[in-house]
């Protein structure tokens, strides 16, 4: 099954994104806690793009495609512009986050701990981040 959502680059869109993801995930065999975590991971990537790659410019957008089968669900997040390669990002130590009083950096750690596999590719002006969750594991 495939589902799509276009998210304009405004953080006010994040609650709509969560509702969209919830409707897809509730029919999977993931537990309520796992569904919650997957929603969080996808939102973290989208929020990161909205804020850091697109400066909350609501004229710009990111596209989310969700491809699900019985065994696997894949979240494909597409945007245009300067890409953010989640795989190359060196996430901070938690202790650094406390010391520097920075309020960012935790989101990517969450994504990497929640999802089973992450891919990033970029060509020309288009960036794709794919988040995989195996439905019969963890």
């Amino acid at each position: 099954m495939n589902s799509q959502l276009r998210v304009y680059c405004d953080t006010a869109q994040l609650s709509d994104l969560r509702q969209f993801l919830e409707s897809i995930l509730k029919v999977t065999q993931l537990s309520e806690i796992e569904q919650h975590q997957v929603i969080l991971a996808v939102e973290e990537v989208c929020a990161n793009l909205i804020i850091h790659s697109h400066d909350c410019n609501s004229n710009e957008y990111i596209d989310l495609n969700v491809i699900s089968s019985k065994a696997l669900i894949v979240f494909e997040i597409l945007d245009f512009g300067e890409g953010f390669n989640i795989l190359e990002y060196q996430e901070p130590e938690i202790s650094q986050v406390i010391k520097s009083k920075r309020k960012g950096g935790l989101g990517i750690i969450l994504v990497k701990r929640i999802m089973d596999k992450i891919e990033f590719e970029s060509f020309e002006n288009k960036n794709i981040c794919r988040l995989y969750k195996i439905l019969n594991s963890k």
Binding site: I94, K101, G107
Partner: peptide, 17 residues
């Protein structure tokens, strides 16, 4: 019902202080 890293980061930012 929900907290993302943005909210967690707020709590974290006060711990030292």
């Amino acid at each position: 019902d929900y907290i993302s890293s943005a909210g967690l980061g707020v709590f974290m930012s006060y711990l030292d202080e």
